[in-house]
Amino acid sequence: MPNQSGSLYGLTILSPIIDDESATPSHDLQIREYLANLPTDCKGPFALAPYTHLTRLAVMDDVIYVGMPSSEEHLKFKYLIWEANFDGDLDRYLVALAKTVPDQINAIWSHCVGYPGTANLDKFLTYMKSCQLETTFYFAAVNDKSLTQTLTALQTQRAVADFIAKHRGTPAPELQREFLKFSARLKAMPTPLPAAVSHPRGIKTGGRNE
């Protein structure tokens, strides 16, 4: 199925934006203004709701005229483009967004033609699917790991690097005991929050070969 790569789903949605001459500012500008102030860190809607690896929203004002001898043409509507890369099933993802961050989803899509809101989940799903485009070709560099697995692996990578640096030259029996303690600590740590900022490890440099 072209919308999927391994365990990941590539969602592409084009929602026509309401064209209302009496709206001031216009609906596309209202979307842009809202998106410009929407957090992209761990307080953002796609971090609060589960499953999203990467996502983007963009207002497409018109198609692009590439010059003669091609024909110039224009869209009747501006479109809100939503491109998302997430774990697993489409319905589960959309329902999770609608339930976790309904205010943000409604604030964005309330400027789009025919948007029914998130209160009625069936209508919400029907609307989103009516705006969905099938992906023709989808590529994901890592397509067999969930978001949780990836965030955990990044945490493990940092912790392992620290452990190795701190235990250089440690005798095997002590190293084994230390590793068991380290492993238990690491496994007890909570999964890092999505989009959380990682702090520098403070690697010491300045050796003879640097």
Binding site: I31, R32, L35, A36, L38, T40, G44, F46, A47, T52, H53, L54, T55, R56, L57, A58, V59, A141, V142, K145, L147, T150, L151, A153, L154, Q157, P194, A195, V197, S198
Partner: peptide, 16 residues
Amino acid sequence: TDYYYTAYPHATANDL
């Protein structure tokens, strides 16, 4: 793009 979110902004594809 008007809004761009990634769950791991400090990691590259190779880091992953």
